[in-house]
Amino acid sequence: MNDNPQPEPLTLHAADGYPLGGFVWRHRTRSIDGEPRALAIVNAATSVRCRYYFRFAAWLHRHGWDVLVYDYRGIGESRPARLVQLDASWLDWGERDFEAVLHYAREAFPGQPVDVVAHSIGGLVTGLAPSAATIRRVFTVGAQYAHWRDYAPRTRLPMLLKWHVAMPLLTQLCGYFPAARLGWMEDTPRGVALSWSRSRARFEDTYVRAPIARSPEARAALVQRLAAFTAPILAVSITDDPFGTIAAIERLLSYFTHAPHTHLRIAPEQIGVKAIGHFAFFHSRFETQLWPLALHWLRAGAASPEYVAPRNRSTVLFKTNSAIVRGQRPTEEPS
């Protein structure tokens, strides 16, 4: 077996004709041990290039999955020549881009189960696609939609100033958010920057003002689409992630009313490290410590044996050292 499989470049088109770039790791056969081989799709965090997830994708491929990573419109392989001319919001990333990927999956991987690994906004994106009913299982990391009141208390003020003051101001000046030159993330379409900076306690209320406005009926339809999602979700959050607080993770999960879900919260000290944060889960240094959580969930639809999966879909799991406490919701994050 090739321990370093190389992905194939991929270009597909959304229903509106927009070209999306990505990469796919394929096996020669569509079955494994007599069963259809699963396809895993990675839905990235906001304005994080799909290449960031290459090592994780190749690792999943070595463990039996076909894997597809792609960039949302405006980002990385899917960036147009002039970003200032692109109108795209978080809703477009789900309703158009991820939907296009699901259509491609049905055509290119017929009969194969589809799993999703979603990072940050990728969790919301997953539920927005009209074809999301075709998904078998979902594994999320730090999945939320950046409502500022949910940020960790110790970092809330600087994050509020950065993402809800500076970002919309720079976006208004430039016509897009020039994040790359600031070293914050990839340059970002105007509508995505506004989706983030205007994010409300109810995510659909973000879309009440131009240029990203949706009608009341369209906003209600978004909520109904998330409620109709039924694939089981394992939502992992990290205690030192300033975005992925308990309140933030639970706020998004509350929309998936018909999807069995488990919230598993992990502290860096549990695995003998000082920090993990919002991004490091996908670093290769956690291949043996954290990545098996995703593997076991996608393979078996259950939490890893070291955790006890709750029967009640709304139960949150908190693991402290070797003890597991069910159903307790701390009122604030550790400092």
Rank of each mutant, 00 (worst) to 15 (best):
A280V: 05
V114F: 10
L102F: 12
L182P: 01
F203H: 09
S322I: 14
Y104Q: 08
A294G: 08
H263N: 12
W196G: 01
F177H: 15
E99T: 08
R156A: 05
Y145V: 06
H27I: 08
Y18R: 04
S304N: 10
R299D: 12
P158Y: 03
V273W: 00
T155Y: 15
D3S: 09
R106F: 04
A275Q: 15
H27D: 07
S254K: 09
H63A: 06
L20Y: 03
V125C: 01
A267Y: 00
E332Y: 10
N312K: 11
T230Q: 14
A45P: 04
Q328W: 13
E107D: 10
Q144D: 11
H61K: 11
R251V: 01
R79S: 04
D205L: 04
G183S: 10
L293D: 07
E35W: 07
W291V: 11
K162L: 11
W148G: 02
V208Y: 02
W297Q: 00
E99M: 05
P330C: 02
W291G: 03
P178W: 03
L161G: 02
T155R: 13
P9G: 02
R251W: 02
W25V: 07
E95K: 06
E250M: 12
N43E: 00
G277F: 06
E332R: 15
T315W: 15
S314C: 01
L170G: 09
R198V: 00
T239Y: 00
I271C: 04
L102D: 06
A280N: 12
D66E: 00
Q112A: 10
R198E: 02
A40T: 12
E306N: 07
R285Y: 01
G183I: 01
R329S: 13
R73K: 09
A143V: 10
F203L: 08
A259Q: 07
P305L: 05
L182N: 03
N321D: 15
E8F: 11
P5M: 06
M167E: 09
E107P: 00
G272C: 06
D33I: 09
T134N: 06
D241F: 03
I271H: 00
Y104W: 14
V141K: 11
E269T: 13
P158G: 02
R79G: 01
S237T: 13
E306Q: 11
K319L: 10
D97K: 07
S195Y: 02
L60Y: 08
Y70P: 05
D3P: 01
A108L: 06
Q270R: 12
